[in-house]
Design a protein around this nucleic acid. Sequence first.
DNA 1: ATTATACCCTGAGTGC
DNA 2: TGCACTCAGGGTATAA
Length: 277
Amino acid sequence: MPELPEVETVRKALAQTLEGNGFSQIQINRPDLRFPFPTGFQEQLQDQTILAVRRRAKYLLVDFDHGTTLIWHLGMSGRVIIENKDTRPTPYPHDHVIFLTSQNHRVIYRDPRRFGFMLLTSTATLNNTKPFSILGPEPLEPLDKIMPIFIERLQKRSMPIKSALLDQNIIAGVGNIYASEALWQARISPLKSARQLTSIEIERLLKELQDVLQRAITAGGSTLRDHAQPNGEAGYFQHSFKVYAQQGTLCQSCQITALEKIIQNGRATYYCIMCQV
DNA sequence: ATTATACCCTGAGTGC
DNA sequence: TGCACTCAGGGTATAA
């Protein structure tokens, strides 16, 4: 599912439901997801007050008041469902974790492919441990703060700019959809080497990246297969895609060229060969 | 050190 | 209808 806008959509709903409350019961339906659940997972989290639900890159971070943070990644197909505890549960084969809150909610983690995971760490040392210690800046931070870092990191890399956008250690949270969309908006070819971009182009790219991420968050993310907002409603930014999965259709900018699909590092990239140079 | 590839896993979609 | 095959929002461990 989830790139930054989808994770942010989930974060907001979780924050609303969880902050100031806690888990009265935690049910785990299998020993592992991508990684085994930490030993004592339930015991460590049960009946502890939740201070905040944060996001860093594509990671959800649930801070508890006893100094533990739950690191929660949704992988490719992870989905969070928040429903009223009094409704009858509908069993689903990939509901791996079910939290009951101290209020009136049931929070379900559903993940068919199980690329997601839940780990525990100390809140105080979180930023000093991998992967958080090496993540790039958050793309929605103020431009004057992150632009110099972004420029510096890109100018050291020879890989294509599309691949660089997906590198979480260069900039955090961008995934395959929004990388293509941002490059199209900025009129930059995904094939261009990162170090060949001028600072003007990098500035334009970061601005357009912020634009597309913001609009996607406002739309509740993009619903392709697995993602839905935790209240069950679909996101609707997929209707605003200009290039993603639009190969063969006419570019909306030049109105002349059919959009291309190419493969870079094993991932699909969509772009206009005419507009993006 | 940087970059590319293989892989983890299931389900949906396509073509025969 | 069934089977074989490809592909999918991510990250990490390897190899080159």
